[in-house]
Structures are given as structure tokens and as C-alpha cells.
Simulated assay, not measured.
Amino acid sequence: MTDAQIIATAQQVGSQALRWLHSYYDRGLGGFGDEATFDLANPNDIYKPLGEVALATGLLLREGVAGADDTRIARQVIDLAWAELREGDLLYDRQLRYPLMTDPLEVYVHFARAGYRHRPLEEQLATLNRLHSVRASEQLPSRRLASANARRVIGLDQLEDWDALAAATWLGATPEPWLIDWLTAYYVTHSVFHLTDWGARPECLSPRIRDYLRDWLPAWLDVWQEVGHWDLVGELLIVAACIGELEQGTTGWAALASAQLPDGLLPKDANTATEGDPAQLLADHGHTAVVAVVAATTTLARALGGTAGASAGAPAVTLGAPPES
């Protein structure tokens, strides 16, 4: 593929995936459907996917590389997700009850990046940011990077040693690349995402890590293309964009375009059913749609020069009132 073909394919795959997501969330699927409280019975069921949808649409709005229709659709989807979280009140309540949990911060940052702000929650996060107990809590290294990047984006005081945070990850050790497994590959991709703030800060990757990725990303893409794990292929394409190696994603983009169905559904892998109950289809393939939107957005931003760091078309600050305790 030429650069122009990569751009065209990424735009097509990402736009169709975005519209597929919109078709589900616009029908009320993917929402809580009840009076959800801070004590979520299954955070991975609805809560986590809402944050992922906000990530994809928020980045699309940040970069400003999508067309007018896709920008409008992205705004509608993130509006729906923000409403499901009671305009930040649910996040505020959950953080208040569980101060050592980082998921309210990690979900909130995707909305804040697109201009949706909740001042009481940010005041609460600023207080927690100063506590040694919170910073000393046990976390996987890639999750610690996620929290650090979220604080950076929101504008909290930076107390992080980024070199140390990177060194604590599997990627930071630049180990034997042939021993990578499925779960470790996800840790690798997320380490890159958070170190670079999804491609906005490519300079935050050390030359050693960038060279390691440049050397081994093509082989990893080949492995997961061969087994048809399209979700992980998409995540590796985001890494290619974050390090500025778009041509390494040539076969990956062609494979995703071939795997995508006419309605925009992108299977997470070659073995999961792509027909049946709509709610189950969203649960099975919603993350892959998110990944496709993010991969397309970061690829287009790197190729065309997006508006990284700016909240393109961001609404006025949206403040939810703090819930009564």
C-alpha cells in the first residue's frame, strides 16, 4: 500500500466502525438501563465499555482529522456515554466511596480530553493526588502508566518519574521479543498508548524503546494476523501510528478491511459469532470497533497532522453537581 492507500483504508475502516458503534448506542444498547450506583456489580459489563467509547470518540474530536459527519456522530456518541455516567456524578460518587480505585480517573480522562469537565471530581482527584497511600497502591505497571497519563491530561500536579514508570513495564525491559504472548502484547500496546498519550507525545518514548518496537512490530503484526485476532492487530496498528511507522501497518490495514462486515462490524477474532443478539454482538465486538476508530484516528493524525492536544469542537465546560453523601 502507498501512504495514500493506507490513509484511505484507515479512514474507511474507522468511519464504518464508528457508525456501527453509533447504531447500537443510539438505540439505547450499551447503557445501564437502570439506576446504576457507584457500587457496580460488574464494571466490565457496561461501565468499562462506556469509557472505551469515550476514548475513541474523544480522540477523534481531539485530533480533528475526521469529516463533518463522523465528527457529528462522535459527538453524539460521547454525549450519550456522558449522560449514562450522569454527567460525571457517577464517577464522583464511585471515587468518593473507593478512593484507592483508579478507574473513575481513567474513565473521566476520556471525557475531559473532549471538553467534558466535572469540577467536584477534579477537586477530589487533586486531593487524592497528594496522598502517598493512593500513589503507593498496588497496580500493574501499565495501569500505573494509565493513571499517570490521566493525571497529566487533566492537569493535576505531575509527580511521576516517567523513566521509572516505563522501566517497570515488560516493554521497558526490551526483553526477548519472541516470548511475547497474547496478554503481554496488550500490556505492550497500552504502555505505548499511555506514554505517548495516544500518539500526541511521541517524544515520550525513549529511542531504545522506539527502536525495539520498530524492529519487532512487523513480526508481531504477522503473528496475530495469521491467527485472525483482529482486536490485537488493531491495537498494534495504533502502536505503529504512535511511533510514526505507518508503513509497518500496511498488511494490517488490508486485513482489517477484509475482515470488516458491510454493516461496519469488525470481528474481534476469526472464531467469534458475528450474527445473533445485538446486545451480545456489542459485548463481543464493541472493543474491536473502538480499537478500529482509535487506530484510524491516530494513523490519520500522524499522516495528515492532526490537532493533538486541542479539543476540536469541544463544548462548553459541563459540570455535574456532586451527589449528596
Results as ranks from 00 to 15, higher is better:
residue 1 M to V: 13
residue 5 Q to N: 06
residue 10 A to I: 15
residue 10 A to G: 14
residue 18 L to Y: 12
residue 23 S to N: 06
residue 29 L to D: 00
residue 31 G to C: 02
residue 32 F to G: 01
residue 32 F to M: 01
residue 33 G to F: 07
residue 34 D to A: 07
residue 39 D to P: 01
residue 53 V to F: 03
residue 57 T to E: 05
residue 60 L to H: 12
residue 64 G to Q: 10
residue 66 A to W: 11
residue 70 D to T: 08
residue 75 R to M: 00
residue 81 A to C: 11
residue 85 L to S: 13
residue 89 D to G: 12
residue 89 D to Y: 05
residue 91 L to C: 03
residue 92 Y to K: 07
residue 92 Y to D: 13
residue 93 D to R: 10
residue 93 D to N: 09
residue 97 R to V: 01
residue 98 Y to T: 10
residue 103 D to R: 08
residue 107 V to Y: 09
residue 108 Y to C: 05
residue 117 R to I: 02
residue 122 E to I: 00
residue 123 E to F: 07
residue 129 N to H: 11
residue 132 H to D: 06
residue 138 E to L: 05
residue 138 E to Y: 01
residue 140 L to K: 01
residue 148 A to G: 08
residue 148 A to I: 06
residue 152 R to W: 03
residue 152 R to D: 02
residue 157 D to E: 11
residue 160 E to Y: 00
residue 161 D to Q: 02
residue 162 W to K: 01
residue 167 A to Q: 10
residue 168 A to M: 00
residue 171 L to Q: 04
residue 174 T to W: 09
residue 180 I to V: 14
residue 191 S to M: 06
residue 195 L to A: 04
residue 200 A to E: 11
residue 202 P to Y: 04
residue 206 S to I: 00
residue 209 I to F: 07
residue 211 D to V: 06
residue 216 W to E: 13
residue 224 W to P: 10
residue 226 E to L: 09
residue 230 W to G: 05
residue 232 L to W: 00
residue 235 E to Y: 02
residue 236 L to A: 01
residue 237 L to M: 13
residue 238 I to S: 13
residue 240 A to L: 12
residue 241 A to S: 13
residue 246 L to M: 14
residue 252 G to Y: 12
residue 254 A to N: 09
residue 256 L to V: 02
residue 257 A to T: 08
residue 262 P to I: 00
residue 267 P to Q: 05
residue 269 D to A: 07
residue 269 D to N: 14
residue 270 A to K: 03
residue 279 A to Q: 05
residue 279 A to I: 03
residue 290 V to E: 14
residue 290 V to K: 15
residue 291 V to P: 14
residue 292 A to C: 03
residue 296 A to E: 15
residue 298 T to D: 03
residue 299 T to W: 15
residue 300 L to A: 15
residue 304 L to R: 15
residue 304 L to Q: 15
residue 306 G to V: 14
residue 310 A to P: 14
residue 310 A to K: 13
residue 312 A to V: 15
residue 314 A to V: 10
